[in-house]
Design a protein around this nucleic acid. Sequence first.
RNA 1: GACCGCGUAGCUCAGUUGGUUAGAGCGCCACAUUGACAUUGUGGAGGCCAGGGGUUCGAGUCCCUUCGCGGUCACCA
Length: 773
Amino acid sequence: MDKAYLHQQHEGSINALWEEHDAFNPDSVRAYKEKHTALLPTTGKSFSIVMPPPNANDPLHIGHAMFVALEDAMIRFHRMLGDDTLWAPGTDHAGIETQFVFEKKLKKNNQSRFQFDRETLYKMIWDYVQENSGIAQDQMKRMGASADWSRFTFMLDPTVVKIVLQTFVELHEKELIYRDYRLVNYCTKCGTAFSELEVKHVEQIDPLYYIKYGDFTIATVRPETKFRDTALAVNPTDPRYTDSLGKTFSIPGLLGPIEMKVIGDEEVDPEFGTGIMKVTPAHDPHDFELGKRYNLPVTPIITLDGRMDFTWFFEKAEKESVEPKYLERAHKYHGKKVAEARKLMVADMAEDGLLVKTDEKYLHSVGTCYRCGTIIEPLPLPQFFVKVKPLTDNALSALKKGEVKVIGAGHDKILKHWLENLKDWNISRQIVWGIRIPVWYSTSENPDLELHFTDDGKRVSGKISQLLQHYSLETIIQTLQELRPPMNAKFVVSIDSPGPDYIQETDTFDTWFSSAQWPYTSLQAHNDQDFARFYPTQVMETGYDILPFWVMRMLMMGLFKTNQVPFQTVYMHGLVRDQKGQKMSKSKGNVINPLTVIDQYGADALRMALVIRSTPGLDKSVGDPDFRAMRNLTNKIWNAARFIKEGLSRVESEKNAATADEALPQDEAFSKKLTAVTNQVTQQLHDYKLGLAAETLHNEFWHWFCDLCIEDAKKGSLSPALLSKGLVTFLKLLHPFMPYVTEAVWQELRREPLPWLSISDDAECMIFSAWPS
RNA sequence: GACCGCGUAGCUCAGUUGGUUAGAGCGCCACAUUGACAUUGUGGAGGCCAGGGGUUCGAGUCCCUUCGCGGUCACCA
């Protein structure tokens, strides 16, 4: 054996060894056990984890290393216990993330997504993802992830997609899907709507404008929407406005007077601003609700690309006479971005004497896109929603009954809080990279269907009834970009086209709609047995940051579709932080690349550093000193084995005394303690206390086994047979955490078995050897 | 405003249903070492476990409270 453990020389060949034995595949392990029944235990239980699928096109970061280290430790432990063990790997298509990255790439080549029809664009992204898809898998393999790669699943595999579509159909049949014209959280940069969860609220200071509305003064941060105000609202108890309540006023504005009624609503805060507010249902969620309550029209003035739209005014100007000044202004604002238009309008209002005052230091919070940081525009769009109440009720009752247990500081309470307060889920996304919603519109029944398609690389837009006069439906479908079906459009929910007259919805599902189904889709993607054999899974292990996005929704969808919880235990790990406890970020330059660490210190050192003393639900700091310390542990393990294999025999022959049969003074205490450590670590692993188990092992191995027991054996007060047995026990206990060095030592020991220790009664590879009892 | 965490050695953190003398890594000091390992060993310094109160034979651990730090959600014309 080498004087030191050199990870570079072992990790590759050990991966090859495991691959040769197909050791990660439960079917192969089962077959091996059938051949060696005398050697290996079988519990008859199954243990499965479905891997949180990384984005197919992303290189792995330290967070992935964390989940690999934890999940692989659980998997290896249960495999050695004799459970029928599966770790099912896969990758996610990551809808918006991927399309966003791809569009950036297009932009570099001076191209835009609008030059392509959706099918072409989809195919381009597909090919791009394929190029990168092997990377994540290779990197996880280098971390020692013992996932069954033969069961690798991609979110857009046909079997997965089919189940996801069927789920939508079933939800619709049970009346849990509805299409509604609502204000959605729209990012004008990403070009799609988002769910509530993807909106990040940030505090910022904006000017609050006090504007003259006839005899009233209102306060607003969004003067640009004032042209489409439909009413004024006050608190009905506010004495200042009781006389005006219910009356209609003609309010002079930048484009002439608007008729507005004063309505009373309890929700208006008399303390805020002037106690009177303008109601703009098309561009404010609160106003939208008010509008619904008082039957006010929804009249948008901002387009999907975040620009002012005065078409309505120009149409009006054609019908009735409008002062040239107003028309000029409308033309000035038209097509301008919101922020720019706001400036122009404020200037004009000041000129007209409509601006009373400006509070420049108004602090409020605005919704921004979690993805790109752009301010979210609340825009009215018809979208598909999932009615969540029945689903969250089921999830809550499963939690209450203890069918799912959440491990991780306080996160069980956070999950409960989410489930109790969840709003209906907008699952429509205006992107092509995803699963297309299985909804069909008849072109004859919906003549007003608006759509965009490409004709020779140019974007053509219009209503279907008009477009069909110049193009065939087939051409339109083939080169379709997007559909904008009006709210009253009739539609059919169906996986396949209901007839030749139909055109499919172009919106795709929210990525999380398919991820939410991952446990039962990925287990049905490869054969007919896995689902019965491995579902529900035992553990869902993932970062706490995606608890509401993913874990909660898996629970909801799993219960809906399978009437069972998708997993019994949720283990939530924390963020990986740097040595100083700071968040890692590219701008700080403190990002740790797991592969660099593997190159330098080995996969075992990386894994152990991440797991040791980690606590579920809390963040973990790691840095170079930690990796070095754990690399030293790999070397310690190697050298303990080297001494027992090569040095102890020399000590023995020099002494020429104690035989293997003779009991020595320390033997009894040694055996007792070894059993105690084994039991302790086993229990800690059963209790999902992985950080503690790793720490126990580190301390007992180094400071008891090496520092005391090996020295005892040198002195001749502990028998070599027992010491060797202790080594094997520790190797096995350590294997889930440090698979490479333990397997490497195991192979060394098997090469020329020690005279006083028979390991021929054990497996060829440590990975499926029996857990010590 | 609501909820959830955290506060333990110089630093980063463990501490299991409450139970001897509170631990680890890194760092620091002294010494050792040709034979498992310098990626080492031995010894050591360093803690009113954030403050206060309570329950208990016994509290870092449970309860109340104050302070400090972090996170999440909600509202905002």
